[in-house]
């Protein structure tokens, strides 16, 4: 679990790196995360110039392109504030891969390393920096949590999402089979190997639905795009009007449960 940087010390200001997926496809999740952080008394700064962490190019085998995009993000966070990222996968890229990416560029490598210790995945930041506790105001419900592979294996923050949910007294967190297995998104993998990716997301959605939970929550919008996209496709195939597996970012769920 992540403990470096400002752990234990409550910062007054943070940067919010939304990620391109949240900015374009899940803006509500980004807004909810920011609202939640502000409610904790923190000033949230959203650098307007932010784009993408560069991971799509990096994991596809194009380090040069990734470097160009990453170099731009390196300049966005001048103050020594934590950088909170509502995605384990993008946080992992910035925390663990930026220093490697700039291994041959001493100046940027130093910047990347300095930034690395300030990067926090959203749920990790709530639990381990803010000690987030908030009263659950929602009706009893059962949800199922999907944790991304990067959050689990790269960031080691697979427990924080669960902890946040289990602190909500009206919320029961269901246990799906093969919980730690990848949903099959993998960025360009879903395009390059659509048959395998399709089989993986099919199995993932089946196991999430089998829990009987009324919704899936996740701290990664990449996985949600894949999981919800398949669930909706399946609903359409089978002529269902209401979604059989609704889902949302954990920030939206937390905000709703703890607001009047």
């Amino acid at each position: 679990m992540q403990t470096q940087g400002n752990a234990g010390q409550r910062p007054s200001d943070i940067y919010f790196f939304a990620t391109c997926v949240v900015d374009q496809f899940f803006p509500g999740a980004g807004l909810d995360a920011i609202t939640l952080l502000e409610r904790e008394g923190i000033r949230v700064h959203f650098p307007e110039e932010q784009t993408c962490c560069g991971q799509p190019a990096y994991t596809s085998g194009f380090p040069d392109e990734a470097r160009k995009v990453a170099a731009h993000q390196l300049t966005l966070f001048p103050e020594n504030w934590p950088v909170v990222v509502p995605s384990g996968s993008c946080a992992g890229m910035m925390k663990h891969h930026y220093p490697t990416l700039f291994a041959d560029d001493p100046v940027r490598k130093a910047q990347a390393e300095a930034l690395s210790v300030r990067i926090y995945e959203f749920t990790d930041f709530l639990v381990n920096v803010l000690g987030f506790q908030s009263e659950d105001k929602g009706a009893d419900c059962t949800v199922v949590l999907h944790t991304s592979c990067s959050a689990r294996r790269e960031m080691g923050v697979h427990l924080t999402g669960r902890q946040l949910l289990s602190n909500l007294k009206g919320v029961k967190v269901a246990q799906q089979d093969h919980e730690s297995e990848c949903c099959g998104f993998g960025g360009t993998f879903s395009i390059k190997q659509p048959e395998i990716s399709g089989a993986m997301v099919e199995d993932k959605v089946k196991s999430l639905k089998a829990t009987g939970a009324e919704r899936v929550v996740s701290a990664d919008c990449g996985c949600l795009m894949n999981i919800l996209g398949h669930a909706a496709w399946k609903d359409k195939q089978e002529g269902r009007q209401t979604p059989s597996l609704p889902g949302e970012h954990i920030a939206s769920f937390l905000l709703r449960r703890t607001s009047k």
Binding site: F25, P27, I34, F46, V201
Partner: peptide, 25 residues
């Protein structure tokens, strides 16, 4: 959307980006 939509609904950008929502707010 090619292979993506073989087992998923199409990806559709939200009508407003996060940066737009923040400005409105």
């Amino acid at each position: 959307q090619g292979p993506w939509t073989s087992v998923r609904t199409p990806l559709k950008p939200a009508p407003k980006r996060l940066r737009d929502l923040l400005k409105e707010r």
